[in-house]
Design a protein around this nucleic acid. Structure first.
Length: 259
DNA sequence: TCGATCCTGTAG
DNA sequence: CTACAGGATCGA
């Protein structure tokens, strides 16, 4: 489910609904998905702050407890009205003192939680004003990695995943196989603009559509130019959208518009 | 830099 | 049945 826009939506909603709430009891329902004694650390603690960095969520609890949550492919974190009513894919639940619950649901069970002392070093937030063309150029300089793989490196730019890396490259007209370090100034500027545009648009769309009738992912999907559209016509030139494998993931692109 | 791995679900 | 899935990490 989540790329950075979905993670941001999760965090915003969590802030609205559960920030400041007391966790009477924390339960880890799937052993191995959490590192550290989460049940002991979070039981009786108050959720003071919800922070997002890239696709990572940091739940700050009273007592200097920091819980690092990563939703991976199919995780979700949301508030339910009754913590006793849980579906089978719930991996952890934070029972709130008012009877509600913060639930970590994850069908594929790839998501993880970990108690941490400090926040890990991550790459730039694409929507941070400090993330400029010059910053991107500095990161790209000398890199021989393929542009798509580079963009998905969370240590460079944090939050771009398989969908939005492809979308940004399409909008910038850059071939995803192109070595990052060979991009000229003009192309880097286009790429930077595309990243900011794609991510800011996605954040707002995903958040607005959250919880609406129908699937909020579908609304965002309609905005996508290339992702998941193999064989369909490019929205700009009409030629077929291509798919290739990079780093074990599918990359969608237009062979004509992206060079 | 590749492939395997962690898991389950769904589409073909 | 196989292929693939919006992620990340590990070892070769």
């Amino acid at each position: 489910m989540p790329e950075m826009p979905e993670v941001e939506a999760v965090c915003r909603r969590l802030r609205e609904e559960a920030e400041g709430c007391l966790v009477s009891r924390a339960r880890v329902l799937r052993a191995g998905m959490a590192s550290g004694d989460v049940e002991t650390a979070c039981s009786g603690a108050r959720l003071e702050r919800v922070e997002r960095r890239g696709k990572n969520i940091f739940l700050h609890f009273s007592g200097d407890v920091i819980l690092h949550v990563h939703l991976r492919m199919t995780g979700n974190l949301y508030v339910v009205p009754d913590h006793r009513l849980l579906v089978s894919t719930v991996r952890a639940v934070f029972e709130l003192s008012d009877g509600r619950g913060i639930v970590f649901e994850d069908p594929r069970a790839l998501g993880r939680m970990a108690l941490v002392e400090t926040l890990p070093e991550l790459g730039w937030e694409p929507l941070d004003p400090g993330f400029t063309v010059a910053v991107l150029a500095g990161l790209a300089k000398g890199s021989k990695r393929e542009a798509k793989v580079f963009l998905m490196d969370q240590g460079k730019v944090a939050g771009l995943g398989n969908i939005y890396a492809a979308e940004a490259l399409f909008r910038a007209g850059i071939d995803p196989r192109r070595a990052m370090g060979t991009l000229g100034k003009a192309r880097l500027a286009r790429l930077h603009g595309a990243i900011v545009m794609v991510m800011s648009g996605a954040v707002e769309t995903v958040y607005e559509e959250w919880g609406r009738p129908g699937n909020f992912v579908e609304a965002e999907r309609e905005r996508l130019q290339v992702y998941g559209r193999e064989g369909e016509g490019c929205r700009v030139c009409g030629r077929g959208v291509l798919r290739l494998a990079q780093g074990g993931r599918s990359t969608y692109f237009c062979g004509f518009c992206q060079r």
